[in-house]
Amino acid sequence: MKYLISLLLCAFTFQTKAQTFKNPDSLFNPAPYGFSHVSSVKTPGEFIYISGQSGGLGKEHFLNPDFRIQVKTALENLKIILNSYQLKPENVMKITILIVDHSPEKLKIWEEEISKVWNGKPFPASTLIPVPKLALDGMLIEVDAIAFKAN
């Protein structure tokens, strides 16, 4: 009986901090590159799946040919969506970044701009995929995300 009560109590345990971000000591430090190795959620809530956001500005989806400007715009578009759920960048658990004609220079720009948006908060888990082209001519970056909103 004591064992059954323990099992039932464990099944209903609620963690006050819903999100965990980890960078195991035995792996390289990913923080300078703007991501964490792993993120997890241990509490009931709502997952928000955000479609790829490009660097297109406004309803006209204007694509500036400058990569840094598109990165800033894609991150701003992501923040607009998060805000519509009353969330912030630190609620993002996982992102995927698609970069056209990826290079060390573009990676440096990405790292600088994501660091400004996350501003010292834990970075989400991340995958960067170099691609030759995206959906529209002139698109240089696309960022999708999975965010979590605790109940």
Rank of each mutant, 00 (worst) to 15 (best):
G56I: 04
Y33V: 11
D137I: 12
L78Y: 06
I69D: 11
I114S: 04
I48Y: 07
G138N: 01
S51W: 08
I141T: 05
I80F: 13
L98A: 13
S115L: 07
E142F: 01
K79P: 03
I109Q: 02
D101M: 06
E46P: 02
L134S: 02
N29A: 05
S51M: 12
K133Q: 10
K42D: 15
Y85H: 14
V41H: 08
P44G: 11
N91T: 10
S126R: 12
G34R: 00
L63F: 07
K72N: 11
I50Q: 04
K59C: 08
F123H: 01
E90I: 13
I48W: 10
E142W: 07
E112N: 12
S115V: 07
L75V: 01
E90A: 11
F35G: 05
E90S: 14
N64G: 03
L136G: 09
K94Y: 14
A31T: 15
R68T: 13
P132I: 12
H37K: 08
V143M: 06
L82G: 02
I48S: 04
S115C: 10
I129S: 10
V100K: 01
I129T: 13
K116C: 03
N83Q: 14
L136P: 01
F62Y: 15
K106P: 02
G58W: 03
I109H: 00
G58L: 03
L128F: 10
T127Y: 13
L134W: 02
F67I: 08
R68E: 15
F47S: 11
Q70P: 03
S36P: 05
D66Y: 05
P30A: 04
S26V: 15
M139E: 15
I80C: 12
E90D: 15
P122A: 08
Q86D: 15
G52K: 03
G138K: 05
W118E: 00
V117N: 05
A125T: 10
V71P: 01
S40H: 13
K121D: 13
F62D: 13
K133E: 09
L136Q: 14
N119C: 05
E105W: 06
A135E: 12
P122I: 09
Q53P: 05
A125G: 09
E142S: 15
V71L: 04
D137G: 09
I48G: 00
Y49M: 14
E76H: 15
K94M: 12
N119H: 12
A31L: 10
L140I: 08
G138C: 04
E60L: 14
E76Q: 15
Y85L: 07
T96W: 08
E90P: 00
K108C: 06
G56H: 07
E90F: 11
Q86Y: 10
A74Y: 01
P65G: 04
Q86I: 07
L128N: 06
E105M: 05
A74D: 03
I50N: 01
V131Y: 09
K106Q: 03
G55Q: 06
K108L: 12
P89S: 11
Q70S: 03
F35S: 07
G34Q: 03
S103H: 04
P32F: 06
S39M: 01
L75N: 00
D137K: 14
E113I: 04
S54I: 08
I114P: 00
D144V: 08
I80N: 14
K108P: 03
V143D: 07
P30W: 04
F67K: 00
K116S: 12
W110M: 06
P30N: 03
